[in-house]
Nucleic acid binder design. Structure first.
Length: 224
DNA sequence: ACCCAGGGTCATA
DNA sequence: TATGACCATGGG
């Protein structure tokens, strides 16, 4: 398991190269993006971020002060705009109450993670996005792509818990923050470019990562 | 016209 | 605990 995970990381890394995630201008923007991208295409998130920037409200203080309807209108392109407007306000309120970025840096990783998970609208993946990419903590992000890839590679059955997968990757990469940032980014890049809506994933075969193929909407798995 | 996207919450059984 | 409904826009 550990060896296979490292092998997948290595192959993706050799093929796609450095990813340099997360695309954002500040830690707070990473957190905003993490909420906005929930079950949403990143291209839509970019439009929402641009709108927030254009109106100069991409800060926790501005978001707290902005009326709900105005905020919802700005994040409209990212979908679920009513939910996400509320979640952004909850995040901003917490961000300020914990002393901003300076305050957050003083908090232990596990404490930070449990606090994030208590916020309404922030689940495991969103919290871990924030911890890894905004707060530089050694926490890996498990998303639907990771599960799918690992499943196709025969590493997992599919019903493993979130934390089991997260800890498995964290151990495999020896809690190296840079590698964890890259690995998650590589998995997303790979999935977006080659594993969607194609009968045969040429990249998987080329890279030798998962060699999956589809048959009439049903996936078939080949041994890794 | 349908399917999916870098999830999470809530109600029900 | 395990499914299903719901949230909503934009691109393929």
């Amino acid at each position: 398991m550990q060896v296979k995970i490292r092998r997948i990381f290595s192959k993706l890394n050799n093929h796609y190269g450095l990813q340099k995630w997360w695309p954002a201008r500040s830690s707070f923007e990473v957190m905003v993006g993490a909420i906005l991208t929930q079950n949403t295409a990143w291209t839509n998130v970019e439009k929402a971020i641009q709108a927030l920037r254009k109106h100069s409200v991409l800060s926790p203080y501005k978001i707290c002060l902005l009326p709900h309807n105005d905020l919802a209108a700005l994040v409209r392109p990212s979908g679920y705009f009513n939910q996400k407007a509320k979640r952004l306000k909850i995040l901003s309120d917490w961000f300020i109450s914990r002393g901003g970025l300076r305050g957050l840096k003083k908090i232990e990783t596990l404490q930070l993670r449990s606090e994030l998970l208590l916020l309404h609208g922030i689940g495991p993946e969103t919290a871990d996005d924030m911890l890894l990419y905004a707060l530089e903590r050694p926490v890996f992000v498990i998303d639907a792509y990771t599960r799918r890839l690992f499943s196709r590679c025969g590493l997992i059955v599919g019903d493993e818990g979130y934390d089991f997968l997260r800890l498995s990757v964290e151990q495999s990469l020896k809690s190296n923050i840079h590698d964890m940032k890259e690995f998650h980014a590589l998995i997303v890049t790979h999935a977006k470019e080659h594993c969607q809506k194609k009968p045969v994933c040429k990249a998987c075969a080329l890279i030798g990562v998962c060699n999956f193929y589809k048959q009439k909407k049903k996936e078939a798995q080949i041994e890794f």
